[in-house]
C-alpha cells in the first residue's frame, strides 16, 4: 500500500517537477539515477596512467599522501562539468551522495589494498557553507562511507581562513590561496589513523596537499585522497 502511494506521489512529482539529466537536460527515465544513460556513457574514465601522471606531478614531491584515486577525467563543457556544477550550484546534494556511492564501489574494486579508518571531506569555510547550504565533499564522503563501511566525519577538519574560489587560479596562486587554510578541531581523533581525504575535483593538488599536511602534522599516520574527477 505504502509503496503504491509512494509510486503515485513520485509519478505526480515527475510531471510537475521532473527529474532531469544535468548533462543534457533531458527527462530521466525511472531507471536512471542521476545522469541519463547517454551522458553516463560519455563520461571519460580516469585510467591508472592518468592517476599516476597526476600523482607524480603534484604529490610525489610533497610526500604528503600515500595514494590517489579518481573515477573520471574533468572535461570543460562536458557532462562531468555539468554534473559537478549541478551539485554545487543547483544544490543537488543527493547527486553528490550517489556519486560517493559509485566512488565507494570503485574504491572497493580498484583500491582494495587501501586501509583507512576515517573518511574526511575537504571542508568549506563557514561563509561558503552558509551560502551554498551544504558541503558537496561531505555528501561524497557519506556516500563512500555507506558502501565501504568506514566512518566519515565533517567536524574534525575545518577551514579557518576564508579563501577565494580556486576555479580561476593557476597552480602557484592556488597553493598560496590554501596555505594555512586548514585546522584540526581535535587531534586525538586522527592520531595514528589512516585517513581518506575526499573532494569533488582534484586539479593542482594544492588543497589536498594543504589539508594532508595539517593532518600529518597532527599525527595522522597516512593520508589517501579520492575524488570524483581529475582535472
Amino acid at each position: 500500500m505504502s509503496s503504491f502511494v509512494k509510486e503515485i506521489a513520485s509519478s505526480t512529482l515527475d510531471v510537475i517537477l521532473p527529474r532531469t539529466c544535468p548533462g543534457c537536460s533531458v527527462k530521466l527515465l525511472p531507471t536512471e539515477k542521476i545522469l541519463c544513460v547517454d551522458c553516463l556513457n560519455d563520461l571519460t574514465p580516469a585510467h591508472e596512467s592518468n592517476i599516476t601522471e597526476e600523482f607524480t606531478k603534484h604529490f610525489e614531491e610533497t610526500k604528503l599522501i600515500t595514494g590517489l584515486f579518481s573515477m573520471f577525467l574533468f572535461e570543460k563543457g562536458e557532462a562531468i562539468q555539468k554534473l559537478l556544477f549541478s551539485i554545487k550550484y543547483e544544490r543537488r546534494f543527493s547527486s553528490a551522495f550517489y556519486m560517493g556511492e559509485l566512488l565507494g564501489e570503485a574504491l572497493l574494486q580498484y583500491r582494495a589494498e587501501w586501509e583507512y579508518d576515517l573518511i574526511l571531506p575537504v571542508p568549506l569555510h563557514k561563509v561558503r557553507l552558509i551560502e551554498r547550504g551544504f558541503n558537496q565533499a561531505n555528501y561524497i564522503a557519506k556516500g563512500i562511507s555507506s558502501i565501504v563501511g568506514v566512518k566519515s566525519s565533517k567536524d574534525i577538519l575545518y577551514r579557518k581562513r576564508y579563501t577565494d574560489t580556486q576555479t580561476k587560479k593557476d597552480k602557484e596562486e592556488r597553493k598560496k590561496n590554501v596555505q594555512d587554510a586548514f585546522k584540526i578541531k581535535s587531534a586525538i581523533e586522527i592520531e595514528n589513523k589512516n585517513i581518506l581525504l575526499v573532494d569533488d575535483v582534484i586539479t593542482t593538488g594544492s588543497t589536498i596537499n594543504a589539508a594532508a599536511g595539517v593532518l600529518k602534522l597532527h599525527g595522522a599516520s597516512s593520508v589517501f585522497a579520492a575524488s570524483i574527477a581529475l582535472a
Binding site: 512529482l13 510537475i16 517537477l17 521532473p18 527529474r19 532531469t20 542521476i34 543547483e90 544544490r91 543537488r92 546534494f93 543527493s94 547527486s95
Partner: peptide, 14 residues
C-alpha cells in the same frame, strides 16, 4: 522541494 528530492529546479517550470 526540488532540491530535497533531487529534481529539476528549472525556474521557468517552477
Amino acid at each position: 522541494v526540488a532540491v530535497i528530492t533531487n529534481r529539476s529546479s528549472n525556474p521557468f517550470n517552477i
